[in-house]
Simulated scan of single mutants.
Amino acid sequence: MVEIKLLVDCKNHLGEGPLWDVRDQRLYWIDSTACEIWSCNEDGSDVRTYYVPTYIGSMALRERGGAVLALADGFNFYDFGTQRVTAIANPFTDKPGYRFNDGKVDRAGRFFAGSMGYDFDPLNVSITRKPGDGGSLYRLDPDLSVAEIDTGLVCANAPCWSADDKTFYFGDSEHKLIWAYDYDISAGEVSNKRLHISDQNYARTVDGATVDSEGYLWNAKVLGGRIIRYAPDGSIDGEFEVPVRNVTSVMFGGRNLDVLYFTSMAKAVRGVPTTQDGAGGLFAIYGLGVRGLPEARFAG
């Protein structure tokens, strides 16, 4: 029997990026625009909060301890003890209208993170763009070099890899698309970009995603109150209604990697306050009968 629980009523302004650490058996997530990192045990206990100096798009834990962050001003290392950041590189020096958004680490230890425009608003029809505008996808290698992997993004989201590491998935919330690329895990290179999922439902758009051990992609539908499981061919395999409209990202975790955690946001949309109980909270779904894959740590 599937059961959904509100684990932490944290009222995040923009909760994002749940990350289960198999080494320490803890869940991490971020409040992107409140400039915070959150952490708790599997059951939502022992909640801790850490602070960063600017907007945080995504994070990954490091093999050497601490984390690597995709902040508004670029890639940074983070020390949880001192709560201090150390700059690595800023690819936005010539793109002042953009900042980092969603990101993840491949199983070779490289950190991929994409950008978004500060003016992105999925409900603002006055902002008209076309594919080819704006932001980019970047790769931070363990030697701390940065490569631009793809361009033409407005609000980068949903990076994840197939279970066999041969396919990379990546999306853009503005255009409600997720692409698939052939992936070379030995070099960290993508090729053969093609459309994988197009969800043009006017009431929702794509947000954070993960892939389970069977190779199915799970995607949070922000503004739509849904989480959808997609088969490897891009068809819908299952759809789950959740208690909050603005569900933002998903990640399998727990001792057996069989709990689907999801984040949400409490911020107002178009100035209208969010009134749902639990909005901005961290939730968990039990009883799905599916397991996830362990997340890698950044190797640098």
Rank of each mutant, 00 (worst) to 15 (best):
D119L: 14
G117L: 05
G134T: 01
P131W: 03
P142Q: 06
D143S: 12
F111W: 07
D133K: 05
T128S: 10
F111E: 01
L140H: 12
S126Q: 13
R139N: 07
F120G: 00
E148V: 07
A108G: 03
F120Y: 12
S136R: 04
I127D: 13
F112V: 06
N124Q: 14
P142C: 05
V125R: 15
I149V: 11
P142H: 07
D141P: 09
S136D: 12
D143W: 09
P122W: 09
G117I: 01
I149Y: 03
T128L: 13
S136M: 12
S126A: 13
S115G: 09
F120R: 01
T128W: 06
E148G: 08
G135L: 02
M116L: 14
I127H: 15
P131N: 03
A113C: 15
D143H: 09
D106I: 01
D119F: 09
S136H: 15
L144D: 14
S145R: 13
F112A: 02
A113E: 02
L137M: 08
G132L: 06
G117F: 02
S126G: 09
L123G: 11
G132M: 10
D141L: 11
K130H: 07
T128D: 12
P131G: 03
I127R: 11
G134P: 00
S115P: 02
F112S: 00
S126D: 14
G114Y: 01
L123W: 10
L123M: 12
F112H: 02
F111D: 01
T128N: 12
V125I: 15
G114H: 01
T128A: 09
S145P: 09
D133W: 03
R110H: 09
L144M: 11
T128H: 12
G109C: 13
D133S: 13
F112T: 00
S145G: 14
S115E: 05
G117M: 06
D121L: 11
L123T: 10
I149H: 03
I149A: 06
D143N: 13
S126N: 12
G134S: 09
M116A: 08
F111I: 14
S126I: 08
R107N: 15
V125F: 11
R129F: 04
L137G: 00
D133Y: 08
A108T: 11
P122V: 14
L123R: 12
V146K: 03
A113Y: 03
N124S: 15
A113Q: 05
F112I: 07
S145V: 14
S145C: 14
T128P: 00
G114T: 03
R107H: 11
K130D: 05
P142R: 04
V125S: 13
V146L: 12
D119S: 07
D106S: 06
F111G: 02
L140F: 10
D141S: 15
R129Q: 04
R110C: 03
V125K: 15
D121P: 04
G135T: 04
R139K: 13
F111Q: 04
S145Y: 11
D133F: 08
L137S: 01
R139H: 09
A147D: 08
P142D: 07
G109K: 04
S115Q: 04
D119I: 11
N124W: 12
V146N: 07
